[in-house]
């Protein structure tokens, strides 16, 4: 019987997120913990013991933050809503061919369970205040992806009387995805871009 490979909490020079091979940025040296060999009850004391001296030395934010970022970027829960055409490609990305869930991306219907809002379509002035409400209902930390040309800058409807020329007029946007609509690959690429941003997140 082979022993399973240990899951790392943090270890420099080893990629943690599946598929993202960025060099680790400004990571403190954290002791190696074999989670698989620990029971849940034993995990927290062990982690405290291992991290405690480090936290005392370097400060809590610097040590916990990479762990927090690692967990956050591998379980991005986007808001489940469809604005326009891009919503169909958004749905296609969760279909059998692209399977976005392998990146930990699971759409949730309640904004209170979400940490990323994918604005997948044309935003009109009529829906603008509803979009802001949904954004404010999402718990911190939260991100916004503007998917497609309409959400980025109005797209083909830029001159229309009822269309917001870009969702960044309403909420801060972290990642823009070009395309009308973007292919599912492009949407997944945008999510990986967002993971890079989260990886470098400090405060």
């Amino acid at each position: 019987m082979t022993t399973p490979a240990p899951l790392l909490v943090s270890k420099p020079a080893e990629p943690l997120a599946l598929g993202v091979d960025l060099p680790m940025v400004d990571q403190p040296a954290v002791p190696f913990i074999e989670i698989e060999t620990l029971r849940a009850k034993e995990f927290i004391p062990a982690a405290k013991e291992a991290l405690g001296s480090l936290i005392a030395e370097q400060g809590q934010a610097k040590v916990i933050r990479p762990v927090f970022n690692w967990a956050g970027r591998n379980s991005l829960f986007p808001l489940h809503w469809g604005l326009a055409c891009c919503a169909i490609e958004f749905a296609a990305a969760f279909g059998a061919r692209w399977d976005a869930e392998r990146f930990g991306v699971v759409p949730r219907s309640s904004p209170r369970q979400c940490d990323v809002m994918i604005v997948n379509g044309t935003v009109t002035w009529k829906v603008a205040h509803k979009l802001i409400t949904l954004y404010e209902q999402m718990p911190e930390p939260k991100w916004v992806i503007a998917m497609g040309n309409c959400a980025t800058g109005g797209g083909p409807f830029r001159t229309a009387y009822s269309v917001v020329p870009g969702v960044d007029k309403l909420v801060p946007v972290d990642v823009y995805i070009a395309g009308c609509p973007p292919r599912p690959e492009a949407m997944l690429d945008g999510i990986l871009e967002l993971e890079k941003l989260i990886r470098e997140r400090k405060e």
Binding site: T124, V127, K130, P156, F157, S162
Partner: peptide
Amino acid sequence: GYLHRGIEKISEDRHYNEVITL
């Protein structure tokens, strides 16, 4: 009306082939 983009109005400002985009 949450997705009302005014396609009928924009069409009045486009060439016949450009309306196909909309």
